[in-house]
């Protein structure tokens, strides 16, 4: 019997193409994991994807706009009143702040330490948040166009949020402090105990893994950035200790903390420019 080859669907050059492409993607994987050669490629694809991302974000922005535009007059008046009151309180606090800044500079001069209290701040909006369930990475709407740089620190009004991972021209990817791959140098505000806080993949908890059993740390302690490591400026609030359990059979105490910034509810973030 003659096999009628023409009747069978023919798939042209599937194998060759498959092998070439699988090798290419394997090569990409390895070089992307080991070093940063591919950032240009990644950036250009990100720019190409930017219109899609902006389109996807549009309905949400529209809803936000509608909500703002048609909110009740009474509510606006109420909000205005609250804001006025808050402003008065803040102004009063600021009066003391000025004198404290002066005092701090004087003391630092005595100690021969460099004084650096003013940071330039830019505000950015979060475009998309849950892009990847494996990682806590957000995309913000500013990029190298606005002089952002890799490693720039992100905070919100309550504390440290994260740092920039990758900048492209119009947008940037940022990693949150709660990502499992993120650790930041911290100190306990009360007594200056230095250690490291690690993200553990949940938005409302940080692990503090290397606290000896006999260390002076309590529930309710505020932890702030220590400024060691050179990435994060010192003195920004990070989290409040919410659990300390000491087990004598373990080398370290189990300590976890709740970030002061509400990492999964923020819409706007502030970028601190230290360059």
């Amino acid at each position: 019997m003659v096999v009628e080859k023409n009747h069978r669907p023919r798939i042209p050059a599937l194998n060759t193409k498959f092998i070439v492409l699988i090798l290419v993607s394997f090569g990409l994987l390895i070089s992307d994991q080991k070093n940063n050669y591919l950032s240009i490629l990644r950036n250009s694809i990100t720019i190409a994807l930017h219109p899609i991302q902006a389109t996807v974000d549009f309905p949400q922005r529209l809803l936000y706009w509608i909500d703002n535009t048609f909110s009740e007059r009474n509510e606006l008046i109420k909000e205005n009143k609250i804001l006025q009151e808050e402003r008065l309180v803040n102004l009063q606090a600021l009066q003391r702040f000025d004198s404290l800044v002066q005092e701090n500079i004087r003391l630092r001069e005595i100690l021969n330490a460099s004084a650096k209290l003013n940071d330039n701040v830019q505000i950015a909006r979060i475009i998309s948040a849950d892009i990847n369930p494996f990682r806590h990475i957000i995309v913000i709407d500013k990029g190298t166009q606005d002089n952002l740089y890799d490693g720039q620190v992100i905070v919100d009004t309550n504390g440290v949020v994260g740092q920039i991972l990758q900048t492209s021209f119009l947008s940037s990817h940022a990693i949150l402090i709660s990502d499992t791959d993120h650790a930041l140098p911290i100190e306990v505000n009360r007594n200056g105990l230095r250690t490291i806080a690690q993200g553990n993949g949940s938005y409302d908890r940080l692990d503090i893994p290397y606290i000896p059993n006999n260390a002076d740390i309590r529930v309710g302690d505020l932890i702030v950035t220590s400024g060691l490591g050179g990435k994060f400026p010192a003195g920004y609030p990070v989290a409040l200790i919410d659990k300390v359990s000491r087990n004598p059979s373990q080398q370290f105490a189990y300590v976890s903390a709740k970030p002061t910034a509400s990492l999964n509810q923020i819409r706007e973030v502030m970028l601190i420019d230290e360059q």
Partner: peptide, 23 residues
């Protein structure tokens, strides 16, 4: 390959991860 790379870039995973698995 192209769709995989686009997914990698938009989700911020390792470049080539989704491309490799999709292929």
């Amino acid at each position: 390959f192209i769709l995989g790379i686009l997914v990698d870039v938009s989700q911020g995973t390792l470049l080539g991860q989704h491309a490799f698995a999709s292929l």
